[in-house]
Amino acid sequence: MSDIDLRVRYGVMVPLADLARLFHAHQRAMRAALERRSIPIYEIGSSVVVPLRLVERAFGLEELLDDPDVRHQAALDRARYRLDGTRKPLEEYVAEVDARAGRWKASIEEARSVEAG
């Protein structure tokens, strides 16, 4: 798969070497840890890359972050990507947005009625 195909499928890709550095681990150990969690590993030219969001999920990194804005972004990521890390097809994404829309509309209407006194 080409670099662009990987980004279309998974979004941001991160070099295995950078990931190993983050965890203070050897690349071989990092690779084994990812393989145990069934995270796909790809070779693009001379670099080895993995899907960032799958790594975040597998190691629970998004849950470590206390900042509500960051957690909000993580939730949005989950809204766009399936558990296997691939992007949700348009119909699935839109159906989920529609299913949540009632709550948002009610909140907006409530805010308008408060503003109107």
């Binding site: 509500p68 939730a75 829309a101």
Partner: peptide
């Protein structure tokens, strides 16, 4: 659009 609204509110606690 509804997609924009969802982007702004999804994943946040209601009284945040």
């Amino acid at each position: 659009s509804l997609v924009v609204v969802d982007e702004l509110l999804f994943g946040l606690p209601e009284h945040h």
